[in-house]
C-alpha cells in the first residue's frame, strides 16, 4: 500500500464537538435495545492487564476470565481479545487457544514510546513471533509536538510493515495531544500510514478516552471511508468502566459510522473493569436485582 503523508488536515471546532458528543448521551437505550447493546459491548472488549507487576499467574487467570466471563449466565459472548505486554504473549496465546479470542500486545516502548525505532521494531517482531494477532503501538508524541510529523508518519508505516499479518492499532494518546485539531491530524496520519485501528489512549495518562476525542477519530475514519471505500477500526481505551457510558459510545459509532462498524472486527473497548459492570446488568435483567460487586470475579 503506497503511503504518503497527507498535506491537508481538516480543522475541528472543539465547542461543536463537545456539544455533539453530549447529544449521544441523551439517547435513551432501554429494554431489548439495551440488552442487545450490552451483548455487543461484551463482545468488543479487549480485556487488558498492563501493569509493571503483572505475573504469569495473573495473565493466565485473565485468559480464563476472557473465555468464561460469568458462567452463571448462559449464552454470553466471549470478549474480543486479551491485551498484555509482549513477554506474556506466548502464555496468553496458549491459554486462549481454540476460543477465537485474539491476543493483542502493546509494543513500541509502551506507554511513552521514547526509544529508538530499531528497539521498537524488535519489540513488535518479538510480540508477533510469539503469536500476537494484534499490535497496539504508541506514536511518538514528543516528535509530533515538535512538528516532526514525517518522522511520526514513517515510524507508523515501519511498524505496520513489522506487524506482518498482525493487525495494527495505533495509540494516539489523545490526552497528551493538547487539542482536538491535533487528534484529527494524528488520526489522519495514522490511517494514511496504514493503521488497521486507531486507538485513543494507553490508559496510563488522564484523560484517557473521552467521547469528544473519540468522535473526532470516528469522523476521520468516516472521511477515510468516504474517500477510499476502506474501513478502519476504532478503539477507545481507558476510563470506560460503566455500561451506560459504553452504550453511549456505541450510539456514537452507529450514528457517525453506521451499523457496519458495530462488530468487534471494527470496534473495541480497551477496558479492564467494564466487563464486570456489564455482567452486573445481565444478572439484573435475569433476577430483577443488582448484585454486589463481590458476586463478580475480579480477574
Amino acid at each position: 500500500m503506497p503511503t504518503t503523508l497527507p498535506t491537508h488536515f481538516p480543522t475541528v471546532d472543539q465547542v461543536g464537538v463537545v456539544e455533539r458528543a453530549a447529544r449521544f448521551t441523551t439517547r435513551s437505550i432501554k429494554t431489548a435495545a439495551k440488552m442487545q447493546g450490552l451483548r455487543m459491548v461484551l463482545s468488543m472488549i479487549d480485556l487488558t492487564t498492563l501493569e509493571g507487576m503483572d505475573t504469569a499467574g495473573k495473565v493466565k487467570h485473565l485468559c480464563y476470565k476472557a473465555r468464561h466471563l460469568h458462567d452463571r449466565v448462559e449464552g454470553l459472548p466471549t470478549v474480543a481479545a486479551v491485551c498484555v505486554y509482549p513477554n506474556f504473549v506466548g502464555l496468553a496465546k496458549q491459554k486462549v487457544n481454540g476460543s477465537g479470542i485474539k491476543i493483542a500486545s502493546v509494543a513500541t516502548a509502551f506507554p511513552s514510546g521514547n526509544s529508538s525505532l530499531e528497539l521498537k521494531l524488535n519489540d513488535v517482531r518479538m510480540a508477533v513471533d510469539h503469536g500476537a494477532d494484534e499490535i497496539d503501538m504508541v506514536i511518538s508524541r514528543g516528535r509530533f509536538h515538535a512538528g516532526d510529523t514525517l518522522y511520526v508518519f514513517e515510524e507508523i508505516a515501519a511498524v505496520k510493515e513489522a506487524c506482518g499479518k498482525a493487525r495494527l492499532k495505533v495509540i494516539l494518546e489523545t490526552g497528551e495531544l493538547g487539542t482536538l485539531d491535533n487528534v484529527r491530524k494524528a488520526s489522519d496520519m495514522a490511517i494514511a500510514a496504514g493503521a488497521d485501528f486507531i486507538k485513543t489512549s494507553t490508559g496510563k495518562i488522564k484523560p484517557a478516552a473521552t467521547m469528544p476525542a473519540t468522535l473526532v477519530m470516528l469522523e476521520a475514519i468516516r472521511d477515510h471511508y468516504f474517500a477510499t471505500g476502506k474501513m478502519v477500526g476504532m478503539k477507545p481505551a481507558g476510563g470506560i468502566s460503566k455500561s451506560k457510558l459504553a452504550l453511549h459510545y456505541l450510539i456514537m459509532v452507529k450514528e457517525t459510522l453506521g451499523m457496519a462498524w458495530l462488530d468487534n472486527h471494527w470496534f473495541r473497548f480497551g477496558a479492564s473493569s467494564l466487563a464486570n459492570d456489564v455482567l452486573m446488568q445481565f444478572v439484573k435483567q435475569q433476577t430483577g436485582a443488582y448484585q454486589s460487586a463481590d458476586y463478580f470475579s475480579l480477574d
Binding site: T31, A33, L257
Partner: peptide, 17 residues
C-alpha cells in the same frame, strides 16, 4: 450508504416515551 449495512442485525432504539 455505508458498507455492509445489511450484514449486521440492526440496533434500533426501543421506544422511550
Amino acid at each position: 450508504v455505508l458498507p455492509d449495512e445489511n450484514a449486521q442485525p440492526s440496533w434500533e432504539l426501543a421506544p422511550a416515551p
